[in-house]
């Protein structure tokens, strides 16, 4: 199931089941939404943020169970594009999150990518909803020196 619930001039709402293929569909839907509206934002950055947040929701929040729902909200705000991704999982202790990564490792890059490519990243209390914002007309990301290897 992949359903665009509403697409107003400034908002897009997607209800989807937690599958990897639906991440691709969501990416296409959001890219199309931004292109149609000629939104002056780094679309590559938005795609990276979106994909990593959905990947976390599908693989961690939903535990890979493709029967579980994931909700995506996109809003064109005054300062930038806002994404909110929510799954039905228990969340995680985001206060202890570690965005450092092992450059030679096999995983652990998702949170770092979300942090680097977003202008702001916040979680709800339980950690099963992440809100990301990418400000308009922000230059390409700089090397922000995550550590950990």
């Amino acid at each position: 199931m992949f359903k665009v619930e509403s697409a107003t001039p400034r908002k897009l709402c997607v209800h989807m089941l937690a599958s990897l293929e639906n991440i691709d569909q969501a990416d296409s839907a959001v890219s199309g939404f931004l292109i149609e509206r000629k939104v002056p934002v780094d679309r590559f950055a938005v795609r990276i943020m979106l994909r990593e947040a959905l990947l976390n929701a599908v693989t961690h929040g939903s535990g890979g169970d493709s029967r579980l729902p994931v909700r995506l909200d996109v809003e064109l705000g005054k300062s930038g594009v806002a994404l909110a991704i929510e799954d039905t999982g228990e969340g995680f202790i985001w206060q202890d999150r570690d965005v450092s990564f092992d450059v030679l490792g096999d995983g652990g890059r998702g949170l770092a990518l979300m942090q680097i490519y977003s202008s702001e990243m916040t979680f709800n209390e339980s950690g099963n909803r992440v809100a990301l914002r990418r400000n308009y007309d922000v230059p390409a990301v700089c090397h922000e020196g995550s550590s950990g290897d």
Partner: peptide, 11 residues
């Protein structure tokens, strides 16, 4: 596009 899982394959 390349995501974090894709980057892991490169490494």
């Amino acid at each position: 596009i390349i995501d974090s899982k894709g980057l892991a394959i490169f490494m």
